[in-house]
Each structure stands twice: as C-alpha cells, then as structure tokens.
Computed example of a mutant assay.
Amino acid sequence: MTDFAPTGFLQNPHAQTLLSSTKLRRLRIYPRARAMVAASKTVVLDCGDGHQLLGEFATQTKRSKGLVTLIHGWEGNSQSSYLLSAGGTLFNAGYDVFRLNLRDHGPSHHLNRELFNSARLDEVIGAIKTIHTTYPHDWQFLAGFSLGGNFALRVAAKAEEVGLSIRQTVGICPVVDPAKTMVALETGWWGYEKYFVRKWQKSLQKKIRLYPELGYKDKLLKLKSLREMNSYFVPNHTPFANPADYFEAYSIAGEVLATLSSPAHIIAAEDDPIILSEDLCRLAKNPHLHIETKKYGGHCGFVENYQLDSWLDGRLLDIINLSRYPGGQPGKAGLSQ
C-alpha cells in the first residue's frame, strides 16, 4: 500500500470532493467498470415486513474470491461514480459485487410506499441477509460511503445479534454525528447544501407522483433549505417528533459500535468539509475497529493524481484482501496495513 499524498490543488478538500464525481472522472471509470457493469443483473430483494430494496449483482465467470456488498451515500445510487469505481476495481480483482440501493435511491421509488429515512436500519439488515442467503460465499464483505458507511457500520454492529457473518466492514467517510453533518452542510460552502436540496427535492417529486396520497406535493415547493425540509418531513413522515431525535437515531457516536464482533475499518480525511474528523474520537473503543485518517481527501474523494485515479479503490481492495489472509497470502510476503 502506498500512502495518499496528493499535490497542488488536489490538496484542496473541495477539489477532492467535487472531482470524485465529475463527468470527466466518469470517463476514466467506465473502462475499468465495464466488465462489472456487463456482468450485472438487477435484483429486487425481499427485506422482510413487506419491504423491498433494489440492487445490482455482478458475479465472476470463474471462482470468486468472495462477495462485497457496497452501499452508496445519501442521494447517490448504484450508478454513482464512486460505487462504479470501487466496484469495478473489486470485480476486476476477482470478487463478486452487489451494489445496493437504499430505499428511494436509484430507480426504486415504486417499491415501497413510505419515504426513506436514515433510521431504517432493519430493512438494510434484511437486504444484507437476503444477499448472503441468495449468493452464499465463505467470504462476505460490506463497504459503504458517507451515509452508506454509516449504514454499513451499524449493520456490522448488529451482525452477531441478527445472525450475519461479515468478514470485514469498511466505512469510507461515514456519517458519525448527523446533527453536526447537517450544520456543516448548512454553514459550509453554499454549493453543498444546494446540491442536496436539489437532489432530495427531485427524489421526493418522483415519490409523490407515484404515491400522491402522501400529501406533500404543494408543501414541497415552499421548502428551500435542508433545515426547512427536515423540520417538515421528520415529524410528518418518520416516527420521530423532531429532527434532533431523528439525527440521534442514526448517529454512530457513543457506544453504538461497542458491539462490533468482526473487523471494521474506517477511512476518513482530516479535511472532510462534510463529516468532521474530530467526531471520530467519539466512537466506541472496540478492538475490532480500526480508524485510518489521511490529512487530505475531502469527502469520499482521495483522488491521487491529475489523471483522476482513485487511491481509495486500491486501499479498499488492500483491506479486503488482507482480511482474507491476515498473515499474508500463501506464497507471498506478509501484508501490512
């Protein structure tokens, strides 16, 4: 593994955050992801309690090294650049890859009547259990980005309780304290809040066209900020009375990760403008949890050069490979983190 050491304007956190999902970078990603995309098939998962989630599964034509389930961030989907990039790297290295869409992400709005919220952990656990049952492997891995990293770590913390076997979980720039993340979006560079407001509104418009009885069509047009949207949708379309209670419900600060029973690895950037690295010290102490921070990287960026190559993809592959052979692959020198 080489360390992440970008130069010039690539040390700027906003450049890292934005470059990770630009159209130019997608042009670099597609050739590497082509084999995975060609092998992918769309799958509807039964998550229990009448809930369904959508995903895309790509399997090797030869013996697989294991199955990696990937979860995107808020208002991303299975076609997000970072998921295609990471998934393509893992698939080309010999792993099966399942790219899971959270509720109301990607083309999945029709599957469930009720709206997505980030506290819906049970249906994600149900989805992972169905994936593991439908596509059994001796080596099951889980990784997520941003909000997806938060979900992945919460699933891992519940794994022993719900009967899931996960060899390694990786959270990339995971949301730690949602309330502080929301403040960072509101008070940081204006483009971030505008981006998420636009994406969330677009998603909610899709949903109301499918389920007009949800009744928020006229109200949605009047909501112009994340604070206004949370203040309306949390008490009216979640089990929570207010945004503070809702944010607390999916925070991983405090003792949430104390129940981790298998290896979990967090990759974060000290300059992340959305997820504050200072909150990582608020995570539970657990011998299974390893936290890796880099000085640069922005939010889920880690673009290592002007060819827009991803350091993160190689690091994710390193971590997963290492978890299969902690003492080093047979016949090779020992691997180290």
Rank of each mutant, 00 (worst) to 15 (best):
G55A: 07
S118W: 06
V176Y: 08
G55V: 10
R198T: 15
G331W: 00
A39I: 11
R227N: 08
S85I: 04
D218R: 07
S310W: 12
F98S: 09
P235I: 10
H265M: 01
T169V: 14
N286H: 11
L115E: 08
D122Q: 15
S203K: 10
G331I: 00
P178D: 12
A157Q: 10
R103S: 10
R154T: 12
A93R: 07
Q16P: 02
Y195I: 00
P6W: 04
Y306K: 09
E114C: 10
S85R: 09
L147E: 09
N321G: 14
D138M: 02
P243F: 10
L221A: 15
A93I: 04
E255P: 03
L322W: 15
G66L: 08
I266N: 02
V162Y: 12
R26N: 14
K224S: 12
H237K: 07
H132G: 01
Q168Y: 07
C281R: 12
L84I: 07
L111W: 11
K207Y: 11
F233D: 01
E213I: 03
F302H: 01
K224T: 12
N150T: 06
A86H: 01
A264N: 07
K194T: 09
T259A: 15
R26M: 14
R103F: 06
G144E: 08
L111C: 12
V97T: 07
Q168M: 15
G314E: 12
L54R: 13
Q307N: 15
T134N: 12
I274F: 01
T238S: 12
S108R: 09
L316D: 04
G163I: 01
L316A: 10
G298K: 00
I274A: 00
H51W: 06
A127E: 10
V44F: 00
E160K: 14
R154C: 09
F91G: 00
W311A: 06
N92R: 10
S146P: 03
F302T: 01
G298S: 04
D3F: 08
L102E: 07
G215T: 07
H110Q: 15
R113I: 11
R25T: 09
G148C: 08
R63H: 14
R324F: 04
D177M: 04
Q205M: 13
S336I: 03
K65P: 09
Y195H: 15
H105T: 05
H109R: 05
V303Q: 08
P287S: 12
S231A: 15
K222R: 13
M229L: 15
I131H: 11
E228V: 01
I267N: 02
D309Y: 05
I266Y: 02
S203R: 09
E228D: 07
D218V: 03
A179M: 12
L67W: 00
L260S: 11
T293N: 03
G297Y: 07
G254V: 00
L90D: 03
Q337C: 02
G50N: 14
G126P: 10
K207P: 11
N150L: 02
M36I: 01
D245G: 05
K180Q: 14
G50T: 14
A38I: 01
I166F: 07
S225N: 13
T130I: 05
Y30Q: 09
A241C: 02
P31H: 00
F247A: 10
Q79H: 09
Q329C: 03
